[in-house]
Design a protein around this nucleic acid. Structure first.
Lengths: 364, 364
DNA sequence: GCCCGTTACGTCAACGTTGACGTAGGAGAA
DNA sequence: TTCTCCTACGTCAACGTTGACGTAACGGGC
């Protein structure tokens, strides 16, 4: 195919020589700048075409005064997670409109890895970054920000000042989920959550507490299981819940993988039609399970779009005070969240208010 | 945060001035090259630290003899598709080991968009590309390849020579699926597939035909529905199948979104326990549906790893003949593919051979 | 003492491109 | 005519870095 190794890419100088003009004139033609006559333009274009010339963006961005690399960095937790993937796609779509490409990386929720990727992006002089911060301290992010790198945090807000963020109504929506369950008469609502170092987990837990408080329910410590990393941990925790003397009649699972684990256990014990479940984060096929899974659905494309808009505004020099956009999540009723508690469990005066399994949508 | 705009990034010259050495010496220290005394090394390191110096990779790769940008391009169809996302992640993991970052883009199966992204990557002088080719002609890819850009195609092989590829056992696995269904006694097995311009779709259809041929079944044109783009088209096609005088007793859905659409229809008509279904591509929660969905599971991490290994070998100058790696897909029996045909439909002498719903795994 | 090799630096130019500025030639106004 | 202005180029240096090469100082062997 390419017998003697990769051949040298043609440069402006090659084009200039062939078209018998100076490199500067080639530069003018390539960049559609004025100052080149029609005949010269045509000669240069022809020369570039025959040589297969393509400008070298790295050289150009080195020299240009604005130093733009037309590249942004995206640093999420795990690009194979559907949530992260959808977010990346939304950012990418917006970036493409401006001719900007995306350097993507997974931080694995590991501070060291995040720091490493951060400097990796920085040495490539990206124009800005969209970051899902790892749990714990955000020193590395703050330092990067203080150097002047445009940055937008998604899913989790900054613990430091002066930086834009886009998040979901974690707390309010979680509270709504609990209120929804309580309105059906549930009194023993369990909380299953991800690592408590994550801001989203904390917020969702706080929303859970608010929900309990609003309906006069008391917090039962044994119904709260946090720091569940992945479906297996969630599965084990759910099993433990049903070994209790007084097991929960409803579950609020505060993260998508946790939801999956809990559902597995419910099915395993044949409880999926009798124990109510509401999960945070929608997932494909949630409507095709029996019962359909009631979820709080985040508007992921909107999150991504907003994050992209913010970062590009900053890159373009927007100096206005930092924005903290909050995108509302919606409660999608599919059945699992509308299961009432067993009759002997219904609290005084709080009858099941809604029709169970009121399928209100067509799918995720 | 940054009152007078982004401040200038410190350069080697700044570090050199502070450490009172030449820029060349700074270069030596930064790159851990010999030729700098211990005291000088320390002085330079200290200076770099106080200034917050970080090397400019674009400048460095411009000057370096190997011209490496330590960046590869990944061009898939849709980064928000779980298959693509998992693939990206696998490539990214391998790339990170070498300090290489990934520029990612979605081609949307649009030749123009693919060409655009291709040149976008080329102007950034990526060291190589991992590409999921769009359907139809591959001129743009071939041209890029002929310029000498290292390239590996994933999921779909090149229509031109001299280029590595990594694919799945599309044909053989599809045939196995049909054989599996036929062994249960099914005689009317429908095929539902994605766009026929895609190589994978063609292969899977060919496998379907081989399966029919191996078992002596005759192809019924009305049971074949192709060019289904997305779940909605699949849903409509499935509905049409069951409006036939002799509807199918089993479905082979040759793409993951098609599987979802078909399942929706089966459920809608209450047929999901009586009509057999095998889908190509696994998906989350396939085991939690009732019945569990029997699928051909591609080994996505293996696909990604292999692709990454190949591209890095080429980047490192490997000149051996092109490799066409084929990663085997596995039939995961979960129930839906083990549903036998109704009694009056069983063909002569071909009784249901296996136990239906022989759950053989724990989940996707 | 001298020569040689080695180490630790420095100098210079170049990678591919563009900003700043210079200049030749022609059109138009005085 | 002569001066001015504009257009269409060209020249030069610089972006931040590194390869090629130069050189001063030192140590060791004779």
């Amino acid at each position: 195919m390419d017998p003697r190794g990769a051949r040298r890419e043609p440069t402006m100088r090659d084009v200039a020589a062939l078209a018998k003009v100076s490199t500067k004139t080639v530069s003018r033609v390539i960049n559609d700048l004025p100052g080149a006559g029609p005949d010269v333009v045509e000669r240069v274009r022809a020369a570039a075409r025959t040589l297969g010339y393509r400008p070298n963006l790295t050289a150009s961005s080195l020299r240009r005064s604005d130093k733009r690399s037309a590249t942004i960095g995206v640093l999420f937790e795990d690009l194979s997670n559907p949530f992260d993937a959808a977010l990346l796609r939304a950012v990418e779509d917006r970036a493409r409109q401006t001719g900007v490409l995306v350097l993507a990386g997974s931080s694995e929720d590991d501070p060291d890895l995040q720091r490493e990727l951060l400097t990796s992006l920085a040495t490539r002089r990206v124009d800005g970054m969209v970051v899902m911060a790892v749990g714990g301290h955000q020193d590395a992010l703050q330092q990067e920000r203080e150097r002047g790198t445009p940055m937008v945090l998604v899913d989790r807000p900054p613990t430091f000042g002066g930086t834009d963020s886009v998040t979901t109504t974690n707390r309010d929506s979680s509270r709504d989920a609990v209120l929804h369950l309580a309105a059906l008469g549930h009194r023993r609502i369990a909380f299953l959550g991800d690592r408590q170092t994550l801001w989203t987990s904390q917020e969702r837990y706080t929303g859970y507490l608010e929900g309990l408080a609003h309906t006069g329910l008391t917090l039962r410590e044994e119904l709260v299981r946090t720091d569940l990393r992945g479906p297996d941990a969630a599965q084990a925790a759910t099993t433990a819940l049903f070994d209790l003397d007084e097991p929960p009649t409803a579950l609020f699972t505060a993260q998508n993988l946790v939801t999956v684990g809990a559902m597995r256990t419910l099915r395993h014990h044949g409880l999926h039609r009798s124990v109510a479940l509401i999960g945070f984060d929608d997932f494909p096929l949630a409507d095709m399970l029996e019962p359909g899974v009631t979820v709080l659905r985040q508007d992921v494309p909107a999150l991504g779009r907003r994050a992209a808009e913010l970062i590009f505004a900053r890159i373009d020099g927007d100096q206005s005070p930092p924005t903290h956009a909050v995108i509302p999540a919606a409660l999608i009723q599919r059945g699992s969240g509308e299961i009432p508690p067993p009759h002997d469990q219904v609290g005084a005066g709080r009858g099941a208010a809604r029709t169970a399994r009121s399928r209100s949508d067509t799918g995720p």
